[in-house]
Amino acid sequence: MKATVVVFPGSNCDSDCFNVMKDVMKADVQYVWHKEASLPKCDLVILPGGFSYGDYLRTGAIARFSPVMKAVKDHADQGRLLIGICNGFQILLEAGLLPGAMLRNKTLSFICKHVWLRTDDTNNPFTNKFKKGQTILIPIAHGEGNYTCDDATLKGLQDQNQIVFRYSSEAGKTGEEFNPNGSRDDIAGILNQKRNVLGMMPHPERSSEQVLGGSDGKQIWESLLVSVKS
């Protein structure tokens, strides 16, 4: 698998993503600075977490205009794989590559903890190694993960099985008490209609090695490996 990690000013999970790709998944990975106008031809582009442009104006709002974003969009338009994690998800929303927007967490506080996610769709390149309904423990670390969209968009996401991860209990029960940020329909991660772009607030790259306290996130990279090979 060939992967590219895009680095924006203020990205802070780029090394984590790079490390997982290189040392855990043994992938061929490289960094690309946001000022580049093109991307190397690769299977997977990762928009990492962080605070691109200091979260000025709105999270992800300025990064959308980085020169590299046109190449990122072209990469996705060609049907190749793109994942945005945390701030990367926020950038995908601002760039219009995924529908909806982020609001401040309902508690208004920055939340940094492990949460359970229920896998509600496995018919996509990111979760094909999962069992439907499988729960995984993945850390979140964000102040604005309160996903929102209008009713028509939500219905579209539900009807086309674009909601991949929902916040839940360990047993897979959803409800307000298991939703850390107040996101609509307990959404933690969504796909685009073509199912080759995933945005998620939780950090699989921080949970892909047992030494970091858990490796549930590794299954996402393993799924991608399967998709790329097939």
């Binding site: 401040r104 967490n105 508690t107 208004l108």
Partner: peptide, 9 residues
């Protein structure tokens, strides 16, 4: 924020 959007702040 739009009227239809909850304003946690």
């Amino acid at each position: 924020l739009k009227k239809s959007v909850l304003d946690p702040q």
